[in-house]
């Protein structure tokens, strides 16, 4: 299976480009789609999920254009939108049965699949309650379950961990890892740790532009020797934040231990430390902005 994205762009009414010039070639695995809020991640995912139509460029699923022929993709697509709703008076089981019917699953198979999914997302005990009484995290789990209903080959999930508690986040990451063997999973987030352990590929988007597509190791290698840590008095923290790209701050008895990404040591006291993927992401975005690769 292959997902090919060529020169993809989406212009909204009023002439604003939400996305432009995206080129990707994706195979089985988990793709972490990273970018700040408003970068164009959801726009890209809506295009891939055949919800929106591109203004330019094309998307090919196993060589077929998904605008001209969306059905082959839709048959194997699982999509979790960032903002989705539920019918509040239906129970979780009824809601999933409804969506299974819409996705064309046979009743008996749907029933089995729904029970397995309810177990998977730890909602079996609450499956008979109306969805209107569910917490945000529980609704999100229903959303994850519906995305997996039709055993998708392409799973597109937009900010899937929103509202999940830490335990649920770990569970979800493990689930993605398990699922990724024979399918393409595209996971959009602005929280780097969500993709740190599971992503086989990383794509960064900023201001509607694709700025990177690399394996996670490349991001770590790129920032190696450029991550610094030192301690500053609390009163100076604001000034330090203005001068450097701070990726973390930890309050200590002697002040605030700050972590920054920079070409060279920001201060004589700064010492190099091992980079994380978050440092790599910040460095990638920073470098793209500096090199002017975000100009429309």
């Amino acid at each position: 299976m292959r997902l090919t994205i060529e020169g993809l762009g989406k212009r909204y009414r009023g002439g604003t480009w939400g996305l432009r010039g995206v080129d990707l070639e994706l195979g089985p695995g988990v793709v972490g789609l990273l970018g700040p809020n408003g970068a164009g991640k959801s726009t890209l995912l809506r295009l891939l999920a055949t919800i929106s139509r591109p203004t330019e460029g094309r998307v090919l699923w196993n060589g077929e254009d998904i605008v001209a022929r969306p059905e082959p993709l839709r048959r194997v697509l699982g999509y979790l939108p960032q903002d989705f709703g539920v019918y509040p008076n239906l129970t979780a089981r009824e809601f999933l049965a409804y969506l299974a019917a819409a996705k064309g699953l046979a009743r008996a198979a749907a029933r089995q699949r729904i029970e397995a999914l309810l177990e998977l997302v730890a909602l079996r005990d609450d499956a008979g309650r109306p969805l209107g009484g569910f917490s945000g995290g529980m609704r999100q789990r229903v959303g994850i379950a519906q995305a997996l209903l039709a055993d998708p080959q392409l799973l597109v999930v937009d900010e899937p961990t929103t509202g999940l508690d830490p335990e649920e986040r770990v569970r979800f990451r493990n689930l993605l890892s398990d699922l990724s063997g024979e399918r393409i999973v595209i996971l959009s987030t602005h929280i780097v740790p969500d993709v740190e352990s599971v992503a086989t590929d990383l794509v960064a988007i900023d201001h509607g532009r694709q700025i990177a597509h690399d394996p996670p190791e490349d991001w770590l290698a790129a920032v190696e020797g450029r991550v610094w840590q030192w301690t500053v008095p609390s009163a100076e923290l604001a000034a330090v934040r203005e001068r450097f790209r701070i990726s973390g701050a930890l309050r200590r008895a002697e002040g605030v231990e700050v972590r920054a990404v920079a070409e060279s040591a920001p201060t004589p006291e700064a010492r190099p430390v091992a980079p994380t993927l978050e440092d790599g992401y910040l460095w990638t975005v920073e470098r793209a902005r500096r090199e002017g690769r975000l100009a429309a």
Partner: peptide, 21 residues
Amino acid sequence: IRPPSLAPLAPAARDFSLLTL
């Protein structure tokens, strides 16, 4: 923490019914 595994869906499971929907 480790979720139960999910069996693949058999091809015969896909069978749209207008009346069901």
